[in-house]
Amino acid sequence: MARLLHYAAHPSPRTSTANSAMLSRIRGLEGITSLDLYAEYPRYDIDIEDEQQRLLAHDVIVLQFPLFWYSCPALVKEWLDLVWEHGFAYGQGGDRLKGKLLMLAVTTGGPQEAYGAEGYQHYELRTFLTPFEQAARLAQMRFLAPYVLHGALKTEPEAHALGFLRLMTALRDERLDLRAAESADILTHDTLPLMGIN
């Protein structure tokens, strides 16, 4: 069993549909640590020491958030800025996250076809996520393809939320084909590379 750490971050859970559904699906799931970042730090007073200990105590880190202006909500960035210190995540002696897995679970407002040279968002979704990918690389972590829901505002979130539950369970039980997950562009609820009993 892999030790799995899940962060959900949505500044306005009241108006969220997909992210709330995902969170409530995996709430209480055995063997994973799940945190609502905005509930944990409503006043942004992130405890660096606590957070670093939490990271060290797990093998897989999943960050779940809605895409806001092509990036993560502010508190996720704040968390990254403060917790992933030099000497911890990178820089001199900064190899404490080495070998761990980082995975994003993002929802977008725009439809899938909008993300690409032809679409009105003009860039691939992965292009917007390169800061996270590079952060993982600098921290010597493995970066898996993001688990994505496009058009989250007008899609029923149930299938995606169930897929998220399957994904998290598989990560926990080490049944996700990591090689396939690394080489994929994005993962969706119907393209999860699971191994063994499905």
């Binding site: 500044p11 306005s12 108006t15 969220s16 806001f68 407002g109 909008a114 505002l153």
Partner: peptide
Amino acid sequence: RGWTPPSPQDTESDR
């Protein structure tokens, strides 16, 4: 006014 998601009409009009 915090983080109110755009409506489908908003998204459509941008497209």
